[in-house]
Design a binder for these strands. Structure first.
Lengths: 145, 145
DNA sequence: CTCTCTGCAAAGCATTTGCACATTG
DNA sequence: CAATGTGCAAATGCTTTGCAGAGAG
C-alpha cells in the first residue's frame, strides 16, 4: 500500500496499516467534527463494505496513539477530529455545529486547581455551549425574539 | 404530603410534588455525584417499587427547573447533583470519584471566547481528568511507578 | 373529577464484542 | 505463515417511551 505522511504514526506503532485505517485518517484530515456514523459514510465512498464496528475499533486505536481526539457532550454521539493542537469546543445548542477555539490562559488555571487537590496525570476539556449567530438570526426571522 | 424547603421549587413549577420527586431531591441533598442507578438505590430505601424510568423522568424535570445539574464524561453514565453554585469537576480516571472545584477566572475567559464568535445564551463546563492522590499511592504500592 | 404521574416492559441508540474469514508484515 | 484486522450480527449499557392503572390537586 502507498504510505502517506499521515500514516506514519500508525507504522511507528504496534498496529498495522490497513486500507480501512488509512481511510479513516483521510476522512478526518479534511477537518470538522464527525461522528462515527459520519466517518462511516466518508469511508464508504472508498471502501463500500466497511463496517461501523471497524470504524469504532479504528478510532479507538488512533485515539490511543494520539492521532485522533474524541469529544462528547451530554448524551450526544461522540465526535472525532484529527489531533492537531490543544483547543476547546464551542457547540451550538441548536444546529450542533462545533467551532474550535483557543484559550491559552486555561492551562494555568487547570493545573493550579488540579495540583491543589493532588491530582497527577492531568488532562482537561472545556466545552462552551451557546447559540451561534446563524441560529440566532434564524430564530429572529420566525418569531420575534 | 409534608412539604420541606427543598420541595418549594417543585411547587412553584407547573409540576406536581409527588413522593418520588421529593425522594429524589432528598437522595441528592446529601451531596455527591450519583448516577441514575445510584439514585435509584437510595430512593428504593424509602419507596421499594420506584422504577428507573421514574428516576430519569424526575431528574429531567428537576434539571429543567434548575434544581439539579447533570454531568457526563466520555461514554460514562450521567452523574447528577443538587444545583448549588457554578463549579467544575475533577474526575479521577481510575476510581471515578468526582470532586467539585471552583475557577472564578474561567467565566471571563469563556465569555470573551464565545462573544468573539458571536454566540449568545452561553453556558460552559470544564472537566479535569487525572489520577487522585489515593489512586496514585495505591499504584505505587503494587508496582513501582 | 381531571390531569398528571408512575410502574412496567419494550424500544432506541451509540458503542462493543465473539467469531470465522481475510489481510498484513 | 503467524499474528492481527475485518465484516457481520448479536449483545450491551444507558436512557427513553407507550400504555393502563394510581395519585395529586
Amino acid at each position: 500500500m502507498e504510505v502517506k505522511a499521515a500514516d506514519v504514526g500508525l507504522l511507528q506503532s504496534r498496529y498495522r496499516l490497513t486500507k480501512q485505517r488509512a481511510a479513516v485518517l483521510r476522512a478526518l484530515s479534511g477537518g470538522g467534527h464527525l461522528s462515527a456514523e459520519g466517518i462511516l459514510h466518508r469511508v464508504r465512498e472508498e471502501i463500500p463494505a466497511v463496517s461501523l464496528g471497524t470504524i469504532y475499533r479504528t478510532l479507538e486505536i488512533l485515539r490511543a496513539i494520539g492521532l485522533v481526539q474524541a469529544f462528547t457532550h451530554g448524551g450526544d454521539a461522540a465526535r472525532y477530529e484529527a489531533a492537531l493542537d490543544k483547543h476547546h469546543h464551542l457547540l451550538c445548542s441548536q444546529c450542533r455545529h462545533v467551532l474550535n477555539v483557543h484559550a491559552p490562559e486555561l492551562a494555568r488555571i487547570v493545573y493550579e486547581v488540579a495540583s491543589a487537590e493532588n491530582f497527577d496525570q492531568v488532562d482537561y476539556s472545556l466545552t462552551i455551549v451557546g447559540r451561534c449567530a446563524r441560529c440566532a438570526t434564524a430564530a429572529r426571522t420566525v418569531s420575534n425574539n
